[in-house]
Simulated assay, not measured.
Amino acid sequence: MYRIGELAQLCEVKTDTLRFYEKHGLLSPSSRTDSGYRIYTENDAERLRFILRAKAVGFTLAEITELLSIELDKSNWACADVKGLVDDKLANVEAKIAELNHFQLSLQRLSQACCGGPESAEHCSILEALESSTDNIRCENHSHTHDDEQFTKNCQNKAVSKNSKEK
């Protein structure tokens, strides 16, 4: 039998976490002492470990609630049901990764198009790209010190070409 602080320490979480899970119906003490202290059993500790492992792999509280309902009534569920939940979660994670990769590429392009120099931001390529309705990012007319040599050469060539036309 564990008091709330003991169970929290055993599972390396805060007592507030246990109260939060209790408030959301994921965990409840098996009993209370006459003075109102929460008492948890080893089964409660296992349930908490299940919750923490599910949380660690990215499941939301709602998804954990669903997994717990399956866990409590395994005979009325198929393994395919559980796999379906995991596959749905995996698809969501893959979509988020694709979105983050898109953000990364877009931010890299914005960063590489800008010299980052002390010049006025009146003609900042980043601001211009964000203001425009196109996906094209024009290079600034300043020297570049980026690792991407080809991109830098292209930017410098465009700048030289632009300067030649202006003269």
Rank of each mutant, 00 (worst) to 15 (best):
G116P: 04
L85E: 00
C79P: 01
G117C: 15
K89E: 01
C114T: 11
A121H: 14
D87H: 03
Q104F: 10
W77E: 07
A98T: 13
L110N: 04
C114I: 05
S120E: 11
K96T: 08
A91C: 04
E94Y: 04
K74M: 13
W77M: 03
N101P: 06
A80Q: 07
C114R: 01
G117N: 12
V82W: 00
L110Y: 09
K96L: 03
D87R: 04
Q112I: 15
C79I: 08
G84M: 05
N76D: 08
V82C: 04
A121L: 15
S106I: 03
V86G: 00
K89F: 00
L85C: 02
E119L: 12
N76Q: 10
Q104M: 12
S120Y: 08
L107T: 14
Q108L: 13
A98D: 09
A80P: 01
E119R: 13
G84R: 08
I97Y: 00
D87P: 00
P118G: 06
D87K: 05
D87E: 10
A121Y: 14
C114V: 06
H102E: 13
L90W: 04
V86R: 00
D87F: 05
N92Y: 06
A113F: 03
V82N: 00
D81S: 10
W77K: 11
L105G: 08
C79S: 12
N76E: 08
A95S: 12
V93S: 00
K83N: 08
K83A: 10
S120C: 11
A78D: 11
H102N: 15
A95Q: 12
A78H: 10
E99T: 14
E119T: 15
A78V: 12
C115Y: 03
C79E: 08
Q112K: 14
D81W: 00
C79W: 05
N101K: 10
R109V: 10
S111Y: 10
R109Y: 02
Q112H: 14
C115M: 08
A121R: 14
K89Y: 00
N76K: 09
N101G: 04
K83Q: 11
K89H: 04
H102L: 14
S75M: 09
L105Y: 09
A80W: 00
K89L: 01
D88Q: 12
S75R: 07
E94N: 12
V93R: 00
V82D: 02
L107R: 07
D73F: 07
H102S: 14
K96C: 02
I97W: 00
G116H: 05
S120M: 10
D88K: 10
A91D: 07
E119K: 12
N92T: 11
G84S: 06
Q108D: 14
S106D: 05
W77Y: 15
L85T: 02
K96H: 02
W77V: 11
D81E: 09
D88S: 14
A98C: 06
L110V: 09
